[in-house]
Design a protein around this nucleic acid. Structure first.
Lengths: 266, 266
DNA sequence: GGTTATTTTTCAATACACGCAAAACATGCC
DNA sequence: GGCATGTTTTGCGTGTATTGAAAAATAACC
């Protein structure tokens, strides 16, 4: 009685294996890995018969997912694929892409990890994985924070030209949250260039007494900084001699997310 | 004897219509247009039976093209779709060629600059550099916009013969987005020929109240219009007396991109 | 102009995607 | 709780849409 449903099940594939669609998607993937390919190359790489590959490509072309270079009979990824794909980032996909790495960081270091994006001249937290330590950070998803006194803020600005950073900061002295807050644009720019040199940004109790953050940028497939990832912890657990190591580790995690998004470093 | 092959041919589709794949792609498109959708909503919108939609989605999910929100059974576009789609940008180098000029424009004028291409009878934004002004445009990368009420749209149509423009516009009155929208094909054609004469197209709050755009075409090495570049700003910052100057400047930037692509004017 | 390598089209056979229907699962409502 | 309504998932037989072989067109090479 226990294997009553076996016969039907074993017949062919698992649920949700529609061969035709899989083949089409495989063609798309293959195309995206190489710049351009001819039909025969594609057929070879995907192990499809040329006629099948041809018809599938033709279907993809009609829908705009691939393009055909009239001149030299080569196929490439099309505009519609780009459009559909770009929905990923705008629909909160960044968080999905980042969460696994963030969780890994938390598992390993047991401190809270945040993800933030730039909005206007503030950082907005869009994801968080909490460490299991008793002490909690207050940052919440959706919360906003100034750029000049947070790790995520610095990391988001790392690639911006100095002139623009100055414009964002404004001219006046910056509001001090703690005794450590950098209140002059010039001091901030100096800290920023140090961060750039090291590859990670440090917030040394600049926003909140007793809290240090280490942050690095996350890039999209074109290398543009679209977010930043930070590790926040009580200053006591981030002594100077540990900063360098943590910085490298956070950078590694952020880079892994960037890689996931298709960024090929250098 | 002459219609010997009829029976076989008329039986079903044109060459290159693989229904299963088309349905899968249609699901992807539908998903990319809405935030997130449930299976039943998707099935309804795509006019597929729930079981079919389910199996196709399951296949897309296995490949990472869509994701499933475990919590509240909703589907969304997945990471692999993004990865595959972004290959579109690294292919002709259009965006690479344009970004530096776009950034220069933004540095100089401090307004948002967009790059769009023609797809069917719509414009699709493929790159954007945001100005540092507080006011934001809503256009997002990957978004689509009508041709008749946007700067980029007009610029894309500038070289098209009148008959074709008419065909694209259709016969009926065009949907009005604002009080300024040109709703008759004839009025639009007049505006278009003015744009042609001046070398740049103006969108005078035709899509959105209070927003003006100035756009010019970008050409490939053969002189064909492959994209258009626009500057968007609050109408208050683009008074009539400044339009001419801005138009020349945007044209200069777009021409520089065309040159980069190998176009030698005249 | 023949030889080889591709891209398209034709065509018949059958594997496969399909939709129905029913089962599992989830919600709400009295 | 139990009954009703809605959605997601599985099972299964049917018929058609997808398939690969092979041939026909096209191009590329020397």
């Amino acid at each position: 009685m226990e294997n009553k449903r076996r016969p039907g099940r074993s017949r062919s594939a698992e649920v949700g294996e529609v061969r035709t669609l899989e083949r089409g998607l495989h063609l798309l993937e293959t195309l995206s890995e190489a710049e351009t390919l001819s039909l025969s190359e594609l057929a070879r790489k995907t192990e499809l018969s040329p006629s099948t590959a041809y018809r599938l490509l033709e279907t993809l072309r009609r829908r705009g997912f691939v393009d055909w270079d009239e001149g030299k009979g080569l196929w490439k990824v099309g505009l519609r694929a780009y459009q559909v794909g770009s929905a990923f980032l705008t629909r909160g996909g960044l968080v999905d892409a980042a969460l696994p790495e963030m969780e890994r960081l938390v598992d390993e270091l047991n401190e809270t990890v945040n993800l933030a994006v730039l909005d206007g001249n503030e950082a907005v937290y869009i994801a968080q994985v909490e460490g299991r330590q008793l002490i909690r950070m207050f940052t919440r998803i959706g919360a906003r924070a100034p750029l000049y006194c947070t790790g995520v803020g610095k990391a988001l600005l790392m690639e911006h030209p100095e002139a623009e950073v100055r414009r964002i900061l404004g001219s006046g002295p910056l509001k001090a949250f703690t005794a450590h807050t950098l209140t002059s644009p010039t001091a901030f720019l100096k800290a920023l260039s140090e961060a750039k040199a090291k590859g990670y940004a440090l917030d040394n109790e600049e926003r909140e007494d007793g809290v240090r953050c280490i942050a690095t940028p996350v890039r999209d497939s074109r290398g543009k900084v679209v977010a930043s990832m930070s590790l926040s912890a009580p200053a006591s657990r981030v002594p100077d001699e540990r900063v360098e190591r943590l910085g490298r580790r956070v950078k590694q995690a952020a880079d892994a997310v960037s890689a996931r998004l298709g960024w090929a470093e250098l």
